[in-house]
Simulated assay, not measured.
Amino acid sequence: MNAADVTVIQDALLRQKYPEAERLAAAALQLSRLDGQLWLMLGEALLHQGFGHAARAVFDRAWLFGPGGFLDHARAGGAAKDARWARKKRHRGAAAR
């Protein structure tokens, strides 16, 4: 995916051509499934068409792949750090009893 693809999708959203934006975002996601911005634009297109539940699921996916989302957290070793923190917390709680 390139910047031109994003611009075309953004333009469709700004013109309120939501079915077109949905189609373009879905096609772009076939090439770049880890792009949080594409997921966000797809969610916006769905939301404006009245597909609230589907939009919510797509926004959750956007969060996973967006900047500062779960994927960035995991890549930075965050999941391992969280697990170590939870073990320490359980251990401290058991020692205090």
Rank of each mutant, 00 (worst) to 15 (best):
G50F: 07
L64F: 06
A94R: 15
R56K: 11
W39Q: 07
L13R: 12
G36C: 05
R87T: 03
L38V: 11
G69N: 02
D72P: 04
Q37K: 04
Q30L: 04
W63L: 08
L31E: 14
A45C: 00
G36Q: 05
Q37V: 13
G69T: 06
A12W: 06
F51A: 09
H73E: 04
A80W: 14
L71Y: 02
L29P: 01
A26D: 06
K17N: 07
V8Q: 08
K89E: 13
H53D: 15
R75N: 11
M41K: 05
T7D: 00
K17H: 12
A86I: 11
F70N: 05
R75S: 11
H73D: 01
A21R: 04
G50I: 00
A80Q: 15
A95K: 14
A96M: 00
G50L: 00
R92N: 07
A57N: 11
F51W: 14
A86N: 02
Y18S: 06
G66F: 01
A55P: 10
F65D: 00
A26W: 10
P67A: 13
G93R: 13
A79Y: 02
A95T: 10
L14A: 07
E44A: 11
F59L: 03
A62R: 03
K17W: 05
R84P: 05
A74C: 10
L13E: 07
H53E: 15
V58W: 01
V8K: 11
E20V: 09
L31V: 04
A21D: 09
A25E: 01
D82F: 13
L40Y: 15
L40H: 12
G69W: 02
L40Q: 06
R97V: 12
E22T: 08
P67Y: 03
A55H: 11
R23H: 11
H73I: 00
Q49W: 10
A12L: 10
W39I: 00
H73P: 00
F51I: 10
W63S: 01
A62L: 09
G43M: 06
G68M: 12
L38M: 04
V58K: 05
D11A: 14
F59D: 02
R97K: 12
E44S: 10
L64T: 15
M41G: 02
A28M: 14
G93T: 13
T7L: 02
D82S: 13
R97L: 04
L14E: 09
L14I: 05
A95F: 06
A96T: 01
D35G: 01
R84V: 06
L46W: 07
A12H: 02
L40K: 03
E22M: 15
Y18T: 08
A86L: 15
D5M: 02
A57G: 11
D72N: 05
P67H: 09
W85N: 03
D82W: 12
V6W: 03
V8F: 14
R97Q: 06
F65G: 03
Q10P: 02
F65I: 07
W85C: 00
Q49H: 12
P19K: 09
A95G: 05
A83T: 11
G52F: 09
K17C: 06
V6L: 08
R33V: 08
F65R: 04
